[in-house]
Amino acid sequence: MNSISDCFKSLRSRGTCALIPFITAGDPDLETTAKALRVLDGAGADMIELGVPYSDPLADGPVIQAAASRALQKGTRLEQVLEIVREVSPTLRSPIILFMYYNPILNRGIETFLQQIADAGVAGLVVPDLPLEEAEGLLKPAQKIGIEVVLLVAPTSSLERIEAIARASQGFIYLVSVTGVTGMRSQMEARVPELLKQIRSYTDKPIGVGFGISAPEQARQVRESGADAVIVGSAIVKRLADETPQAGLQAIGEFCQSLKAAISD
């Protein structure tokens, strides 16, 4: 299995900006999730963020909230999500990054959880409600087990915080491009290029930009601002959910290709 860092190393050597699509596990069902991972992997994804559905997704806007609710109503459980990862990840080029909230991690016990996701083939972890101050208890054991924990920087973060987060983050630094929750926006926040520059002044680690990017043109702008990766969530989740699973899979495949084309030369 590729680590996130290795994946970025290889992309950088080719001068390529990474595409990281996001889907919610279990929406519309786990079988479709498994297929979607393969479709995205074959349609230009370089890494894939897999959202584990949670009852109280504080950082998510309406589209991903609704997807998580549907997945939970179907009875989706972490075990099943990891089973899908175990089954599918060996056939993918893209490392899988779990996007999940802290309580289910804490509930399982941090080390047990990390071992379980590592065994399933997960490469990295994004925990949107775990800021730097609370992250130490996760970062250390994760490093030992070989899971890269990606920390987030927001437009509101002070320079001091940006520096500290950039130092501690593993794999890459996740720049939240909007002051807000996940979800599609028509325009990119004007501060993104400046934020990228600020983060860059502190670190050589790759920087991924996400939250609110919903169209190829926005993805291109983000890349041109100097991002190493573009993360697209709600726009994919919505396309997958809007139609029958078959049509949804086709739609996200085509959309993923158009995003990739927009950030490639």
Partner: peptide, 12 residues
């Protein structure tokens, strides 16, 4: 206790 919130809120 603690502060388990998205980074965006930490400065506030």
């Amino acid at each position: 206790g603690g502060k388990y919130v998205p980074e965006t809120l930490m400065p506030a």
